[in-house]
Amino acid sequence: MRSKVSWWHTERFKATLLSVLILAVLLGIWHLATLPKTAPAVTLTPEQIEYLQLMGKDPAAAASGETASAFPTLAQMGTVMVQHLSDPFYDNGPNDKGIGLQLGYSLGRVGLGYLIAALVAIPLGFVIGMSPLVYRALDPFIQVLKPISPLAWMPLALYTIKDSTISGIFVIFICSIWPMLINTAFGVAHVRKEWLHVARTLEVSPWRTAFEVILPAAAPTILTGMRISMGIAWLVIVAAEMLVGGTGVGYFVWNEWNNLSLPNVIFAILTIGVVGMWLDAAFGRLQKGVSYVD
């Protein structure tokens, strides 16, 4: 047992070290790609100097031939990160809110839409998985609705609901429901028949069979569907908020792009990725907790 634990820690250390090395290589490439480029010095006319000053550029730097990369450097990104993380919850008006507030709005929409989807998908998945008749009746509708892009529902939602926030929640609901529904039905339908026969032999009630036999056996598959749904929901909310505007991390990205602030856009992208990783890790821990395999 001790050797197994030691091997696991060694492998984890190697994986962490490899991840750090990959990150260092990527940051090195970023640094080299954003180094200033030097060209032969030129003489600027008064009109060119005036134009550069109007554009907010330094005429002396332009005359020297040294041009900076349009892509932000690591130093610029570090400054932007410190600026945002030092005060993530400020609120200076509709178009100027901290990244913490924007994430809060997005997570609130995702959480509500996802919760509604789970309350619908998991019970319905149980019914579909336990009844071949219901499965055959509902399968055509599931197969037609499942491939539709969640954003394709947005115009219809805005027209019928007439509220951008509720429309965003509806889009999260409609994109989250299918993986949970399908995985729940699959997990319930593939519970080992021997366990069901034993429960029937012992005259266990249907409700007790559902909660004490079927649910624990199907839990890993159900959590897999919930994990996939959360990833899709977090992916979709960013695009939905770009369309409806107002608040949220998706709106933050679009607003900063309109302001031509590329460092802020990159910071928001990294933040979206980190939050998505945390959400996936949380569901990974839940999935591991209900799994019978080490």
Rank of each mutant, 00 (worst) to 15 (best):
W195K: 04
C175F: 08
A41D: 06
F170D: 12
V244N: 07
G245D: 00
G276A: 08
V293K: 15
T201Y: 01
K4V: 13
G276L: 04
M1D: 14
L107A: 09
K288T: 14
I222K: 00
F283V: 10
I128A: 11
T221Y: 01
T10F: 10
I22K: 04
F211R: 13
W254V: 01
I148D: 08
A282N: 05
Y114P: 05
A70H: 07
G246V: 11
T271A: 09
A189E: 11
H197D: 15
P94C: 05
A239W: 08
L262C: 03
R12T: 14
T165A: 06
R208G: 05
A199R: 09
P140W: 03
P123Y: 07
I142Q: 04
N183M: 01
T160I: 15
K162Q: 14
T209P: 12
E203T: 11
A233K: 04
A60Y: 02
N258L: 12
W195Q: 13
G78H: 02
I272D: 08
W7Q: 10
D91W: 14
L103P: 11
K288R: 15
P220N: 09
M277P: 10
M277N: 13
V20S: 11
V110T: 03
G289Q: 14
Q287W: 02
G168P: 03
T16S: 09
V191M: 15
S19W: 02
T160F: 15
A39K: 08
